[in-house]
């Protein structure tokens, strides 16, 4: 297991270097002088020169690239231009908010999407199947920011049940408070979390429902399902114990690959709900032309995606005892 992990981590290196190279060169493609762009048209020449010096823009491109990779290797993402703080620190502050949002969204997505997909596959070509498939198509095709606005319109503006924007106390802190006998912060956290997480979750659930239905239909045609049914096992037992378990690995793989959709969706969801996460940080940084911050945020998101897919590989063993990591 340890050997497998080390080997996989080493195999990640080229991808990570590639990812950082792409980010570096995209942001250095900028036509014109980045320092001038960041400071705006009214900046004095001295200020521009100073920023150029500070950002190392006077060095040749390959030296800049080398320095960038060197800093990256020791976890130094540079300094934000607008906020004058280390990028890594700013990202660290926002990471918890995005993780909280993504995890709760994933929870919604798995409950709704998996259930809908399994039911649709088990009753193929029934009314339930048609309704679920149509719902999933609509969900996949609805822009996530529109879905968010619809939910705000209904649950905040019409019914007034949930706040339309912002974040309550951090979920982890609230859970800690709960154990100390104070349930109030948790309610507050969840009230703010509900709508953005539901938006992100529903849109991922739609995708998950479609993938679950297709994978389950494929597995349900296999011989061992016929054998199980012929043995006289109950339909529910066959579906949950035999089929779902065998659909697990392909589903998990697709979920891992599609996770970047969820991360991408969080950029828009965070903007709609003014959720102070990584995605919003990236968007704000883009508008402020704070390139080191954009670079750091984009890199972090890509890193999360790559690590998550490694985690998915490690989970295969849990689902399928035949998988060994040697």
């Amino acid at each position: 297991m340890a050997v497998f992990l080390v080997r996989r981590l080493i195999a990640l290196l080229p991808v990570l270097i590639g990812v950082s190279t792409v980010v570096f060169f995209i942001l250095h493609l900028t036509p014109g002088d980045p320092a001038q762009l960041m400071l705006g048209d009214f900046a004095t020449q001295e200020a521009v020169d100073q920023l150029r010096e500070e950002m190392g823009l006077n060095e040749p491109l390959y030296v800049q690239y080398g320095l960038f990779l060197g800093d990256l290797a020791v976890g130094d993402l540079g300094r934000s231009i607008t906020q004058r703080q280390p990028v890594a620190q700013l990202i660290g502050e926002r990471l918890a908010a995005t993780a909280e949002l993504a995890l709760v969204a994933m929870f919604f997505a798995i409950i709704i999407g998996l259930a809908a997909g399994v039911i649709a596959a088990a009753r193929q070509n029934s009314i339930t199947d048609y309704v679920t498939t149509a719902g999933s198509l609509l969900g996949i095709s609805t822009p996530i920011f529109y879905l968010g606005l619809l939910l705000i319109l209904l649950f905040s503006l019409q019914l007034g049940w949930f706040p339309a924007s912002g974040r309550g106390p951090a979920l982890v802190t609230s859970i800690g408070q709960l154990f100390q006998g104070n349930p109030e912060p948790l309610g507050q956290s969840l009230r703010y979390l509900f709508l953005p997480a539901l938006t992100l979750g529903l849109s991922f659930a739609a995708l998950l429902a479609k993938m679950t239905r297709n994978t389950m239909l494929e597995v349900l045609q296999k011989d061992f399902i016929r054998t199980a049914t012929a043995k006289g096992l109950r339909r529910q037992f066959v579906i949950f114990k035999h089929a779902l378990r065998n659909a697990g690995i392909p589903l998990l793989t697709i979920m891992g690959l599609q996770f970047s959709q969820l991360l991408g969706g969080s950029v828009l969801t965070e903007t709609v709900f003014a959720w102070p996460g990584l995605g919003r940080l990236a968007v704000d940084a883009i508008f402020a032309r704070d390139f080191p911050l954009v670079q750091g945020a984009v890199l972090t998101v890509a890193l999360i995606f790559v690590l998550l897919n490694l985690l998915v590989d490690l989970c295969y063993g849990l689902l399928d005892p035949r998988v060994t990591y040697s």
Binding site: P14, V15, G18, V19, T21, V22, V23, I26, L27, H28, L29, T30, L257, S260, Q261, L263, G264, G265, V267, L268, G279, A282, V283, I286, R289, V294, V298, V301, A302, F305, V306
Partner: peptide
């Protein structure tokens, strides 16, 4: 491998960064 690298970015974020630059 270049393909894998592009896959690692959520498409909207990569497009955002490009348009921003």
């Amino acid at each position: 491998r270049f393909n894998d690298v592009l896959y690692a970015f959520p498409s909207i974020l990569l497009a955002l960064a490009l348009v921003a630059a």
